[in-house]
Each structure stands twice: as C-alpha cells, then as structure tokens.
Design a binder for these strands. Structure first.
Lengths: 135, 135
DNA sequence: CCGCATCCCCTTCGATACTG
DNA sequence: CAGTATCGAAGGGGATGCGG
C-alpha cells in the first residue's frame, strides 16, 4: 500500500521538522517578540521603568490577563526585570534589562522597514484584491 | 454606579487603542512577518525561485493548507510573485519580489540577535524556573 | 494595587477528500 | 502537480470574581 507509506513518511518528516523548529533559536525568539503585546510592552519600557498600572493605562488595548502574562514571559526570558515594593498597597516596577535593551534596535529595524514600505504593501493588496473581483 | 462607568471607559479605551493598532503600519507588518511560516518561506525563496512542490518538501513541517495560505498572503502583500505555467501537469513558480528581498536584511537581523543571545535567554529561563520550584 | 483562577467563546490549524 | 472544501480538535484570549 504505497499511499500509506507515503503518508507515514510525510508525518515523520513533519515531526522531524517540527522538532528541529522547536530547538531553533531564531524561531523561538521570533515567536517571542512577535507576540501581539511584546513589542508594545518593550517599547513602552524603553523610555524608562514603569509601574504595572502605568503600563496598563499606556497599553489600553491589553486585558489585565494578557499584560500580566506578557510581563511574566518577558521576565522569565530575562528581557525585563520585576521589582516588588511590599508597601500597602503593593507597588510593582518593571524595567528593561540590558538584554531587553539590546533587543530594541532589532525592533526598531522592523518598525523602520514597516514605515518605509507600508505604502507599497497597501498598494500591492489593493491591486491584488482588484484582480480578484474582476476575475 | 461608578463601577459601570469605569468599565465602560475601559472598553472605550480598548476599542480606541485597538483601532489605532489596526492602522499602525509597524504592527501590521510585524504581525505578518512573525507568522509561523512566513520567515521560513521567505528564507527558502531567498536562494532563488522555487516550485510549490519544492517548497513543500523543503518546509516539511507545514501542511498543504498552511503553505498555500502563507503564499497567498505573501503574494497579496507583494512580497512574493507567483507565475503559473499552464503545461500538463501545471507548474507554479514562486519567487521573492524586490520588496520581499528588501525585507530579508530585517529577518536576518532578528536571526542574528537570536543566535547571539539565545544562551542568555535560556539561562534566564532556567534560573527563573529554578526560583519557582524552590519557592 | 497587583495578580491568579475559572469559564467560555471563537479563531486557528490539521486531517481528509475532492477538482482541474 | 497544485491547489480547494469541509470538518473537528485545540488553544488563545476576554470577562469576571477572589486572594494577598
């Protein structure tokens, strides 16, 4: 049954490939920084440390849950630091670590490319969509 | 009822913010290139044009559906070109456009940063997870 | 003030089968 | 060879309420 073996081989190839992807540094980190809220949080913190509530106000689109979750993963990855002041009420300050700061130029590069080329992309989309309707 | 108005204001703030995000070039394009398969497809094509089946073999982890979908959006955004040769059987070639090629340095920058700093990130994770278990 | 836990929707993605 | 169509499972993310 050649069909079965072909399918089996495809599955095996996929597994192998995905295992490779899981250990690929570039891909892991791309996945991190491309998270919907990560770039916004890092950008906000690039101007200096902020309290949780400040971030919450600044990044109004994020739910509490997403903001906390994002900050946790960033802390875990050593990109931001978290300092708790056990006063009443509690105060928590977040700041970019050195590692986090070193990532900013990369984020800026993405941003720069985007702003330079967004018009081309938008034009391409319009032209593509036009072709679709006339078909 | 102050609670209600507070909630209402948060919702309004969120909507405004999300509307802003939807029109933000940097965010739109970050979302594009950060798609799981986009960087892989672009990297594969950076060595020269490839046929659909070649891409499918090279990027073994992607399902047919995802590969096609990815190629469609990239074509729509003007980052890759799609050329159909109506022979029997059909032959379709994909290639990077000039715009797509101009994006490669940015992708390379992300990759370079990742490879330089992955050890730091991994170390940070380990230390973070250690602290959690001992707590 | 900060954050965790629960519930629930709704999108996303893989598997499979079918067309030109 | 190069897709398209449909279905079902899985998980992201919001709303809400409680705890320190």
């Amino acid at each position: 049954m050649p069909t079965l073996t072909a399918t089996a081989r495809r599955n095996e190839a996929r597994e192998t490939y995905n295992a490779f992807l899981a250990t690929c540094p570039a891909h892991q980190l791309l996945a991190r920084i491309s998270d919907k809220w990560v770039s916004l949080v890092l950008s906000a913190l690039s101007n200096g440390p902020m309290r949780y509530s400040d971030l919450s106000r600044k990044i109004a689109g994020a739910s509490q849950k997403m903001l906390t979750q994002t900050l946790r993963t960033l802390e875990r990855d050593g990109l931001v630091s978290r300092e708790v002041t056990p006063s009443v009420p509690v105060r928590v300050d977040y700041a970019l670590t050195e590692l986090g700061a070193s990532l900013m130029p990369v984020i800026r590069a993405v941003k720069d490319w985007s702003e330079r080329n967004i018009t081309s992309v938008l034009a391409a989309r319009q032209s593509y969509d036009l072709g679709a309707t006339s078909r």
